[in-house]
Design a protein around this nucleic acid. Structure first.
Lengths: 305, 305
DNA sequence: CTGTTAGCGCCTTCAA
DNA sequence: TTGAAGGCGCTAACAG
């Protein structure tokens, strides 16, 4: 009988199985943007662990829009998925859609962007510590007037990194100058704003940015303005995107373990799904961010990364 | 009745529907690496169009390995997916797994990396023309000794780009020097190989690489060797990855419309799935690659991209 | 130990 | 017009 099955290339139909067992072995992933080194590495990690446990991964992007996030969720939640891994959109401030999903018995694990109020398992990176390390590094290299190009303060992530910045200067008894905190979080925005800041006469000897793209823009703009990096102005980015090694000078930055985050997130979900007793305790994992010093703070000769 | 349904928040179960209708409205995507600007933009395009037509997207990565590709396909092909969009792994040279899938009635559309022999709908970028444009551009800027860092010749894509290179020099009556074609297709490999080539006394005044990462490595290595770009050596990459704008000098390159490719690919699949009569004619779309000249060929002052 | 059946949730079909 | 039934493919439970 068994042989016959093999000989006829019998393959059980996953759909029928799903219907019968009330589980699909599919997990949904909703992210703001697929085209982003950090997020694609998270997916990569999710996909790897999912494969290990026999899950398939369904991906949808919200494009940072609340409405698309809700829509994507609705599509996925048609009974197709056993669990949802989600990093919420910049816009999102209401969580009814998630609440409803959980009521339907679908497990949710957040990663990176976690809602302020809605509670569920989550994996985040310690942004406060990461920012603290980055700014501390600049201070240790003699910088005192550190410009922070900050992310949107509507998001925990932007606030945590700003907090880290503030803590670092406070730890070192550097007075806080509000002119040194400027909202700016893209490559293009940095290209535009840096000449304005320099020409306005703002005095600074280092820049700490909320992500690596912004740092790349800062470096390109400053070089065009005749500044030497790091001699005149040192730069620390955030994320350790693949560009960090490719720009000149190579970028000192805070490594965010994106792939590891994806793997841990999927592991958490798997644990939830395979545990019989329902634990009410929510699990929050915090991954450590790591400082990667390179030429943009160390100069061109000292390092050998 | 209708109101009652709405009031009770009735949502049809997608799994049951799939079982009944023998279609899941799910499409599978298999790519070599998610963490890659080009591929993630393809997914992004696929996801966008899929959403428009009500499909969900299941993603798996092959990591360039034949075995993982087969495995991923097997998982997806459990009757879960109506169609498969795939860019085949570098390793893959046998296509039985795809053939079998098609026999099961699952439509396949290839994108970017198309098998040499197995025929199905596909969307590719005109690599030959793209490479031709890139090398022609170098020649027009006075270069005659153009080094080509080539991709693996086991893949159509590597061969096509090499062919474009050869055609361009032939068109311009530049003699072919086999020492000027070297296999090398990653950032790290370029960092390693460029000093060796320069120190070996190889004479060249330009480099055309098979992708942008390699070009980034070339530029970084050449700068360390004291070469001026583009004065001493001009560089053209391939792909218009986001790094192209961030490195110094900014990289002249061939733009590959990744997102558009994803969108076209999904459109093709949708057409197949929604057409009643089965057409035997296979459709091959060819997207045009575009030259984006920047500082690495034009110099630092002329351009204003 | 082998063979049959019921039911997962849905919708289309056919009967009342 | 409304309602019941059948079957998509599967397997757990049960009958033989």
């Amino acid at each position: 009988m068994r042989e016959l099955a093999d000989r006829m290339k019998y393959k059980p139909n996953a759909i029928a199985l799903s219907l019968k067992n009330r589980k699909s072995n599919v997990v949904g992933v909703i992210i703001p943007q697929i085209v982003h080194y950090f997020f694609s590495s998270v997916i990569s990690g999710i996909e790897e662990v999912a494969g290990k446990y026999g899950y398939s991964v369904m991906v949808a992007q919200s494009n940072e829009l609340f409405e698309k996030e809700v829509e994507a969720m609705a599509t996925l939640a048609d009974g197709r998925i056993d669990g949802l891994l989600i990093s919420i959109a910049k816009e999102t401030v209401k969580y009814d859609h998630l609440r409803q999903l959980k009521e339907e018995g679908i497990e949710i694990v957040f990663f990176d962007r976690v809602p302020d109020e809605f509670k569920s398992d989550s994996v985040v990176i310690d942004d406060f510590q990461g920012a603290l390390k980055g700014v501390q590094h600049l201070i240790e290299h003699g910088r005192r007037r550190i410009l922070h190009l900050a992310g949107p303060q509507t998001r925990l992530i932007g606030r945590k990194r700003l907090k880290g910045y503030l803590q670092a200067i406070e730890n070192n008894r550097i007075p806080y100058d509000e002119k040194l905190v400027v909202p700016c979080d893209t490559f293009d925005a940095a290209l535009k704003i840096m000449p304005e800041l320099v020409n306005s006469g703002l005095d600074f000897d280092a820049v700490f940015t909320v992500n690596d793209f912004t740092a790349a823009g800062v470096i390109q703009a400053l070089k065009k303005l005749g500044k030497k990096i790091p001699e005149d102005i040192a730069v620390v980015g955030y994320g350790d995107d693949d560009i960090a090694l490719m720009i000149d000078p190579t970028l000192s930055t805070i490594r965010q373990p994106g792939k590891e985050m994806g793997m841990r997130t999927m592991e958490l979900l798997h644990k939830r799904l395979s545990t019989v007793e329902e634990t009410k305790d929510i699990i929050s994992e915090v991954l450590q961010a790591e400082l990667i010093p390179r030429e943009s703070t160390l100069g061109h000769f000292k390092q050998e990364n």
